[in-house]
Design a protein around this nucleic acid. Structure first.
Lengths: 333, 333
DNA sequence: TTGAAAGCGCTACCAC
DNA sequence: GTGGTAGCGCTTTCAA
């Protein structure tokens, strides 16, 4: 920066102002900009952060970047935060709460301006770290009973209930559920819970197969469907924890010579791309994953703006943004 | 850190050494660690980076996080770099070279220790910035004619030729290609180039449909297949620029009552999960996307180790790692 | 094995 | 509109 200042014949402060886009006379600004280009000068963000006491980072934690759900959410966050000069620090927890804690710890070292993470469940240490960080926090994809700060999500249980209701209304009575075996995928467990509640409420019996790790992939569907039909051969509909699994199940139906939905109806969750493209097209719950990211970003920005205006100590906003979901009726159920 | 030092009754330097895991007497180390836990102290990475002149960042640029290809590559990079204490700065270029340049510029402000980016094509300014950065750079997913520094990838053109060869050997003679319309997806264009070369070399005629933006998604396949069959109704095989498109095309064949591969063979590229799960299972080119990330990470680490040992000015390694690919023969072709 | 001083590159603050 | 000074929280270097 000294070099640039010298070349432009101004002080470092003026260079700093030009970079920050603050009040500088047009002529001066041009000279400085020229010097910057000349020297290929790139300001050091670490020095800036240290000096000003505010970084340009936003921390983001998702269970898995490979799931289109969460990569869409990350895209939404990027869309909201990048225009405000925030650089995303993205971490992949792999559905592991200990790993989440390690990642939070490591990200906190970079003094992020705000934090977005997935789900309602975290280790006590993670919660403690997050609260102490004193920056806006949003938990995404769930509506926690006691949020750390704010939340942007929906009730996975209620959404699953709605799908069971849809199936019941279409006349299906022997409805199964296939999902993952892991206790770590809380959203999957919530969906299972919603399924169980609604099935019981209607006096139907539960038919649950839990198999495999999260994230649930396409290859989950085939063995899960086989297991379900082996135990309950007369099953007439199956709700899958995700469209990935639903797709695998439908392909397995093809292989077994079962028609969908004629012999068995299959419903998914998430409205992934495959649900619309596959034949039969998959009936599913549509969740706006990108919107969750976007709304989360906006919520964080609003909290940042407030904190700037008011006291320094982050006043937890506790706001909770409910994201809509809808049953998309297609061909498979 | 002063607070921690005071509480532990040592100097700041000793606290710093404990955090860095350097030579400190066990008793002292314990006292310090206790004070750290007590106060919930989290070291400031910006200050550390500024003081030591070396950040803990690795910059990564991919065209799209939504493509499982690239999210797998990011996972591979994480696996390689995270254990060495490097934090990934992930950017999504959206197949836009201008955006790539902006992202590089913004990431460079954080003084990354190394940089991984996708493809061989960049704006002149991007190349300039990257060279001036003086840190190891790896270009992934391609083998550039004149790499900036190192490269980890394969020839997309040769891989596509191999698939055409496979199809020709299975007796297909009227082979089409469906891909994206964008000039920005260089890997897609390379695949098209390979197709054209091999088709011409065998005296067959080209049948090319280019449609839609990158990243190519499942919904690309159906309209592209329709367009192909409208123009060349007697097509007996189609090579798709990606498995996503191939899947969409196969589903469209189902809808049109065409049997695959009986009426028309369909081949994909990438060996995505859907290729193995769908029926008929998709014949494709398998590329180890995760491995590209892993190898890239290892290449970067090796370069960092060298630079540490030797001179400060990064000696470009110019090494080029070739990644294997293979035709996976399944049911669809 | 530990401590003290200097300074990394920038921005906040106050003068002019 | 511009410049000087102080100092952000660490690590480097050297001394004890």
């Amino acid at each position: 920066m000294s070099d640039v200042a010298a070349l432009a014949g101004v002080s470092k402060m003026t260079v700093s102002r030009v970079l920050a886009g603050r009040g500088v006379a047009p002529a001066t600004r041009e000279r400085v900009q020229h010097a910057i280009d000349e020297l290929g000068y790139v300001a050091d963000a670490a020095a800036g952060a240290l000096s000003s006491g505010r970084s340009a980072f936003a921390a983001v934690l998702v269970p898995s970047l490979a799931s289109s759900n969460f990569s869409d959410t990350v895209r939404g966050l990027t869309a909201a935060l990048e225009p405000h000069g925030l650089q995303l620090l993205i971490g992949d927890t792999d559905y592991d709460l200990e790993r989440e804690e390690r990642l939070v710890r490591s990200m906190l070292r970079h003094q992020p301006r705000c934090i977005a993470l997935t789900g309602a469940q975290h280790t006590p240490a993670t919660r403690e770290l997050l609260v102490r960080a004193g920056v806006p926090v949003v938990e995404m994809w769930d509506l926690p009973a006691s949020p750390i700060d704010a939340a942007v999500g929906f009730s996975n249980a209620k959404a699953a209930r709605e799908m069971v209701r849809y199936l019941a209304e279409r006349g299906y009575r022997r409805i199964g559920f296939i999902g993952g075996a892991s206790e770590l995928d809380r959203r999957g467990l919530e969906r299972l819970k919603g399924y169980s509640q609604e099935v019981k409420a209607r006096g139907m019996s539960e038919r649950v197969v839990r198999l495999g790790d999260s994230p649930i992939t396409m290859s989950h569907g085939a063995p899960a469907l086989d297991a379900l039909l082996q135990q309950w051969p007369d099953t007439d509909a199956v709700l899958c924890v995700s469209d990935m699994s639903a797709f695998g199940a439908i392909m397995q139906c093809h292989r077994r010579g079962l028609s969908v939905p004629g012999d068995i109806a299959v419903a998914g969750f998430g409205n992934f791309e495959v649900a619309a493209c596959c034949t039969p097209a998959i009936t599913t719950i549509s969740v706006d994953a990108y919107g969750i990211g976007k709304r989360t970003g906006e919520t964080l920005l609003a909290a940042l703006a407030e904190n700037d205006g008011a006291s320094r100590h982050a006043t937890p906003s506790r706001r909770s943004v409910k994201i809509d979901y809808t049953v998309i009726a297609r061909e498979s159920a």
